[in-house]
Every structure is written in structure tokens, then in C-alpha cells.
């Protein structure tokens, strides 16, 4: 199976694997009398992150192989979706120490540069409504402050708090952690 297209990564060579695919956005063009066809941008010169759309006219014809759909040549108009970019000025990973009615008390580990852990109080109103169910002692979250450049070109100063979402540990994982803890306990010599 051959997939054309690259956006974040550049292109794939014989040994590489890093070519996220880039779909054209005009879905009417994906339909063909012989069936639905998926089409992708050609990576040949699509080299860099969110590559500028200055070669769209060259992308009007592509040959695409997607699984059982092989080698149709199709014509399509394409537009390249632009993304919003964020560059953080400061990033932390934190965990909740205590929860009150109006705020959470947290410990913060600096992800931007090595430094001592910090403690902070964050008002609950800073937390997105969809994450409030995740707030409890020990919950891990990520906090970033920086500039968000929207796809329309607008720069905004933003603060983003995002609680970690991971599946609950399985009994097998808990048992393995318990065994590892016991092994370490024996090595250290704690009774």
C-alpha cells in the first residue's frame, strides 16, 4: 500500500515511516463512477510543517493506491488546511494535592526548564467544564501559557489547563506495580 502525502513530516524513503497523510478537503471530488477513492497530496515537494499552498495548481492530478482501490487517476481541486500553532512560554506538569470549593492546590513540575517544584492555588473557574469530573487528589494535569497563532493570523495569549485522560489501571498492571514495589523494597532494604 502506498500513501502519498506529508505534512508534519516530509516524505518517506525506503526505511522511514514518518509520513502522516494529508487528505484533500473537497469530498465531492472523491467520488468516482467506479467507487469512492481517497486522494492525497503529493509529498514530492511538500516538505515542511503546514507547507504553504503555493503549488496547489500542480496537485490537480495524483495517482493514489489505497488498499484495494488501486491506481485510479483522478482530478480534484484541493485546498490545504492551515493549522493553529502554539508556542508556549512556560509549561508545567502538575498534580492535585487538595481540592476546595473554589480552587485546587497543586504541585507543579516545570517542563520548560529544570527547576524546583512549585506549589500553586488555581481557581476552579480556570478549569474547563469538561475536565471538572477529573479533578481529585492525585490527578495529573498539564498547564501551558503562551501565544496561540490562529490559522487566520490572530495571535492570542492563552493559558491552557488540560487534565490527563488515561484508562484505569488493570488488575494485571496493579499487580505488576505491586511486585515491582516489593522488589525495590527488598533492594533498598526497607522493612
Amino acid at each position: 500500500m502506498i500513501i502519498y502525502g506529508s505534512n508534519l513530516a516530509q516524505y518517506e524513503d525506503g526505511n522511514g515511516l514518518d509520513a502522516p497523510i494529508q487528505l484533500v478537503t473537497d469530498f465531492d471530488s472523491l467520488h468516482d463512477p467506479k467507487g469512492i477513492i481517497s486522494c492525497f497530496r503529493n509529498p514530492e515537494e511538500e516538505s515542511q510543517l503546514d507547507t504553504v499552498e503555493d503549488r496547489l495548481h500542480k496537485l490537480s492530478e495524483q495517482t493514489v493506491n489505497i488498499g484495494e482501490f488501486s491506481s485510479p487517476i483522478i482530478k480534484f481541486p484541493s485546498i490545504s488546511p492551515r493549522r493553529s500553532h502554539m508556542v508556549s512560554l512556560q509549561r508545567w506538569q502538575g498534580y492535585v494535592i487538595k481540592v476546595s470549593d473554589i480552587s485546587i492546590f497543586v504541585k507543579l513540575v516545570d517542563l520548560t526548564q529544570k527547576g524546583p517544584d512549585e506549589e500553586a492555588e488555581i481557581p476552579l473557574e480556570e478549569i474547563s467544564a469538561d475536565d471538572k469530573d477529573l479533578i481529585k487528589s492525585g490527578a495529573i494535569f498539564y498547564w501551558s501559557i503562551g501565544y496561540l497563532d490562529s490559522y487566520s493570523g490572530q495571535r492570542s495569549r492563552v493559558s491552557i489547563i488540560r487534565f490527563q485522560r488515561l484508562p484505569a489501571w488493570s488488575k494485571k498492571e496493579i499487580d505488576a506495580a505491586q511486585r515491582e514495589a516489593e522488589r525495590l523494597q527488598q533492594i533498598i532494604g526497607w522493612k
Partner: peptide, 22 residues
Amino acid sequence: QVTRDRCSFITTQDAYYEVVRD
């Protein structure tokens, strides 16, 4: 982006790097 042989998670916002990993 997911195909039969490849699965990609992509972000261009560094605030979400760890979120994407998770």
C-alpha cells in the same frame, strides 16, 4: 490519521505534546 498499516497522532501546539502522548 489511521490507515490499515499506519496510525498518526499530530499536533502543532506544544501545550498538547504530553496530551497527545497520553
